[in-house]
Amino acid sequence: MTSTTAPAPARAIPPDDAAPPARRPRRKLTAYWLLLPGIAWLVVFFAVPMVYQGSTSLQTGSLEQGFKLTWHFATYWDALGEYKWHFVRSFSYAAIATVLCLAIGYPLAYTIAFKASKRWRNVILILVIAPFFTSFLIRTLAWKTILSDGGPVVGALNALHVLDLTGAVGLTSGDRVLATPLAVVCGLTYNFLPFMILPLYTSLERIDPRLHEAAGDLYARPFTTFRKVTFPISLPGVVAGTLLTFIPASGDYINAQLLGSPSEQMVGNGIQKQFLNVLDYPTAAALSFILMALILGMVTVYMRKAGTEELV
């Protein structure tokens, strides 16, 4: 972080220009002018809609007769009653996907940061980021081919008895992967993996490799070095990565729609259906309000526990 009070060299210009810029009221006004358009945009199109949504969730009426604010809290109970399993599925799928992303992403981030030569490092980083530029709907649809019934992947999983295992935990049923929770989790993991890898890589890259040598010199075995040195230092990356994976995954409805069956639907599917098909705006608003509150609550607790500084 740069300090605004860097030692200013002796200078011949009037002191007016030499003073640190932040302290003077005229310059302060500049800051507000710079902020105004961007923040106004966010207030009008992000914050105000949130309030509007709160009010909409308490309205009753229909599209033809118009909606009126009647403080109808029952919408929340009805929505929770109808969609409680959607919430459970959303958060459990997102949690499994986040853990899988960490398990798959950490070795890759570690490889890029410590094992790859400089040239390979850039190639791998491009391969991690490049999928971003292919429409993610197309890539998600590709999983339909990869996981197709009787395909090589399902065959291999069957031969290795992985499907028996996942079947026992209720992630799959029978010889299928498509239209089971496993397919949805697999899609979620795939879609949000780069969001886990990039922050992990950023925090691992900063580690001085000499720390590893020092640990080795002190007779730490490789795994102990990892557990006591590398992992604790990379913790901010782990926290950022899990948040960037869990939050979008819990609101996602595309993977559940494209790879799952109606019994894998998540809360996002419910909001989408109520908003775009049923046109029951109060229920859609209540659902998304509950989702937002739950996520904000979880994120706050998690960040307190993990104890990270400013994330922006």
Partner: peptide, 8 residues
């Protein structure tokens, strides 16, 4: 989550 911003 995007769906919350989208709906609101």
């Amino acid at each position: 989550p995007e769906v919350v911003m989208a709906a609101s």
